[in-house]
């Protein structure tokens, strides 16, 4: 096949992947709402189809351009979506055996791909000389793996932890209010109406049951920690590999270019998270808030620096 045909195949595969992810996202949310296993089975099957289409999209893109398929923002986004969904399926569903979080992971992938195709698309082509180095293979693979893991742990799982933690705290508060105070002989709890719990927790009962399916806050916290602890060395390696590449390309390993600065900021924030989690008084919510700030920093590192902040990594077009 010619490069043009490979390119067309890549774009078709992109569409299949995107629509599969959308369908899978809807399926996962339906599973959360109605608690019917067939929804989950459907969603996971479609997500797997999406992953395969996504792999085809990436590989054919590489064949069309005769190089590694992560040379610009569009390709990088497609690969990021692939790794987030594959990471979710392998780590969260495969390893942690949790089925309910798929909608959130897929939502991230759908947004990433939608932004990629709407604003960042460029046809397959060769690399500019600055990107033409074997370090692109090492640095970019590490950066993209680290980002997808941070997105999963610091973004998706941490947000869910905060939601679930809030809910559990409220339940505890309500249970406390219902229990008779030891001295007063228990006149408070008797007066509470029977449907008090549901009303206070959520305005609609469907919402309550939907969130009731989430894993416990403690479990979510542990999952988020382990994913981030996995992502952190990968990200560290990506920053080091980037510095080595910068030394070869620009004659200095570190020059406070916006991309370098923001990847450092993201690194510092997650280093703070890891320390906070082993410090009493910072565990739980404060640490989770740090992880969430880290996720925002990651998004800025990824999007804002390439598109809006002027620097050596502003290769939007190429």
């Amino acid at each position: 096949m010619t490069g043009l045909q490979w390119g067309r195949l890549s774009n078709d595969a992109f569409n299949v992947a995107l629509f599969s992810y959308i369908a899978a996202m809807v399926g996962y949310f339906a599973h959360m709402a109605f608690r019917r296993t067939p929804f989950w089975a459907f969603a996971r099957a479609v997500a797997v189809v999406g992953v395969f289409a996504n792999v085809v999209c990436v590989v054919t893109r590489g064949l069309a351009a005769h190089r590694v398929p992560w040379g610009n923002m569009y390709e990088y986004s497609v690969l990021l979506a692939l790794l987030v969904v594959a990471g979710y399926l392998l780590i969260v569903e495969g390893y942690f055996r949790v089925r309910t979080l798929g909608g959130f992971a897929l939502m991230f992938a759908v947004f990433t791909m939608a932004i990629a195709v709407s604003f960042l698309y460029v046809g397959p082509g060769p690399l500019v000389p600055a990107l033409n180095s074997y370090w692109i293979k090492i640095h970019v693979v590490a950066a993209i793996s680290g980002s997808s893991l941070f997105a999963l742990g610091g973004g998706v799982l941490t947000t869910l932890f905060l939601v679930q933690d809030r809910r559990e705290r409220r339940q505890v508060a309500i249970l406390r209010a219902q229990q008779p105070p030891p001295i007063m002989g228990g006149s408070v709890g008797v007066d509470a109406p029977p449907d008090f719990v549901a009303d206070a927790d959520e305005p609609s009962s469907s919402g309550a049951s939907r969130r009731g399916m989430l894993p416990s806050a403690a479990a979510l916290d542990r999952m988020a920690y382990r994913v981030i602890a996995f992502a952190f060395p990968v990200w560290t390696f990506a920053v080091i590999a980037g510095a080595i590449w910068a030394q070869r390309a620009w004659g200095r390993y570190w020059g406070w270019d916006p991309k370098e600065t923001w990847s450092f900021v993201t690194w510092v924030i997650y280093a703070g998270y890891l320390h906070a989690r082993s410090t009493s008084g910072w565990r739980g919510r404060p640490a989770a808030v740090i992880a969430l700030i880290g996720f925002v920093s990651l998004l800025i590192t990824y999007y804002a620096v390439n598109l809006w902040i002027v620097g050596l990594h502003s290769y939007k077009g190429f």
């Binding site: 406070w256 923001w262 900021v265 510092v268 320390h275 920093s297 902040i309």
Partner: peptide, 13 residues
């Protein structure tokens, strides 16, 4: 650590 992060952010803007 967080102050270092904020200072770096200022430098990138």
């Amino acid at each position: 650590l967080l102050m270092l992060a904020i200072a770096s952010v200022v430098g990138s803007l």
